[in-house]
Design a protein around this nucleic acid. Sequence first.
DNA 1: GCCATATGTAGCTCTCAGAGCTATATATAT
DNA 2: ATATATATAGCTCTGAGAGCTACATATGGC
Lengths: 108, 108
Amino acid sequence: MPSKSRKAESDILATVHESVKGLHKVGLVDKATMREFDAMCLTPVTPMAPEEIRALREREQVSQPVFASYLNVRKDAVSKWERGEKRPDGPSLKLLNLVKAKGLQAIA
Amino acid sequence: MPSKSRKAESDILATVHESVKGLHKVGLVDKATMREFDAMCLTPVTPMAPEEIRALREREQVSQPVFASYLNVRKDAVSKWERGEKRPDGPSLKLLNLVKAKGLQAIA
DNA sequence: GCCATATGTAGCTCTCAGAGCTATATATAT
DNA sequence: ATATATATAGCTCTGAGAGCTACATATGGC
């Protein structure tokens, strides 16, 4: 069950999310609870293969040094990711996923 | 000359930035060059003190575990940042600066 | 009162990402 | 030919973050 049911799932999630946002507006759900709910609906951060990282950077049409400055890492790190020498994880993987989903300007 | 001239500077930067964006629209500056220019204008990532991190998280009204899940780090890391045991840098500092400038939803 | 759950602190070890450096090769441009 | 920018490649080192356990407070339910 690859992309199709996955999409159905996220459609359901989006709908539920909108509903809860409605409850928040009406005052039935406070801000903090809403935040917790948001966290449950956070886009999961998925690992990225070296080629995927390079393709992403090239999609954004920037050099390794420029890409690195956006992510606040050294250019060497980007080079190593793209050649599979190091695997980004944690916060750096989060940033890569952000760029993938929203583009470079989202983290400008 | 702290905030005042700093603000004047960033006003100038913003104006120049808008101008170059105009040149881009007219086709005098291609997309790649524009991206390089953007990188020069990137909001600098500044170090954050422990109390500042805690204040930021409390502003967003989330617990350490929830905050951590947004940044894709473990809850222990957030706790250590806030108590000054570890200093976030690189990608994690970038994420904190993003939240500071744009709020949690910017990295959802 | 009591019990459960969530939260934050504290201590520990370990791995490896990223920093920081130099050198080289290849474009691209002047 | 000579810069300048880019990407690889090699190396070492520091420390962030992972991952764990245990404990102390809340907070809330019964």
